[in-house]
Nucleic acid binder design. Structure first.
Lengths: 168, 168
DNA sequence: ATTATTAGTTATATCTCATAACCTTTTTCG
DNA sequence: CGAAAAAGGTTATGAGATATAACTAATAAT
């Protein structure tokens, strides 16, 4: 059971947090897909449904902000979930631009099951960590991107007025 | 300094390690691109060059295993770096199938500079963490994917003989 | 020697994510 | 009030990431 030909040195690379983060995230996504591939739910789709479940009548724009997904990418995502009968769009009465979102009977029924699958995936993938380590990690990870406010809704309409807030 | 319109509840989602990992990794990649976009180096390209620097004459296959990149995807990656004069391919004398890789004078010269840029990016992005927290995080992240051995070299040549090792 | 394996390439399909252009509806403000 | 700006949403498009399949050439196994 020799670890194959691990002869080379990962050297500098191995000490980079960014590299470790990227690799861990990729492995996690693969494991997620492995668990929820059968029900055809990708991480972002699960995130959308989960968020709609916890915030009924949330608008697509709000979703975009919460998930840092650009509106141009959110449209087809929501459309597909709608097409599959997992999400319903409802025009907002007070603002006719807004599409309010809600779960359907079908997704309402399935979501608890999917959440169990996700929980199973999490237990498996993060099983290498102790409960304390998991708490630490979630706390640390959250510090890295919270407050990102990475536009995500872009197309900032920075046409003429250059008074932009210096996006850096 | 109110956190904008954080009116909705991330609810269940927020407690998922996988979600946090995915968001943090995405934010990190964006920051990396922001720092090294000017020199046209993506994370995977930097990883390749860094690894070749630390392991001269490494083969593409070894690179694939180290980085969990499939050979079908590695080929064009290496080709582009070669085209840009940052990597040189040298047929191995003992095994004419193998392409041994090495840095060029140009990349040898630039790599220290690029490493400094990466260090700057890491300092900025992970600056929200203390030194101890960073040590913790790198240790925890490593536990998540090390030993993955996720094939990555696939195309298992499972032609006729079904005695394959059950790729799952 | 035949067979299986390994290194590498090319082609292709999906997913992710960013930009731009556009329409419609509100909101802001002179 | 009315024009301009801003916000919600859609479509189109391109680059990057990543997975599979099919293939050639060279080496290893039995």
């Amino acid at each position: 059971m020799v670890p194959r030909t691990r002869s080379s040195t990962r050297g500098q690379l191995d000490g980079l947090l960014g590299y470790q983060l990227r690799r861990a995230s990729a492995a996690m996504t693969a494991d997620f897909t492995n668990e929820l591939g059968a029900v055809k739910l990708r991480p972002v789709q699960f995130a959308i449904l989960s968020l709609v479940a916890d915030n009924q009548w949330i608008s697509q724009s709000q979703l975009c902000r919460e998930l840092s997904v650009q509106k141009a990418n959110m449209a087809p995502l929501v459309s597909e979930l709608e097409r599959r009968g997992l999400l319903a769009r409802e025009p907002a009465p007070r603002d006719r631009r807004v599409q309010m979102l809600t779960l359907t009977g079908e997704s309402e029924r399935q979501l608890p099951i999917w959440r169990k699958l996700v929980a199973k995936h999490e237990a498996r993938f993060f099983g290498a960590l102790t409960a304390n380590e998991r708490d630490d990690m979630i706390r640390l990870l959250r510090k890295l991107w919270i407050g990102d406010d990475s536009e995500a809704v872009t197309t900032k309409s920075v046409k003429a007025p250059g008074a932009g807030k210096k996006v850096a």
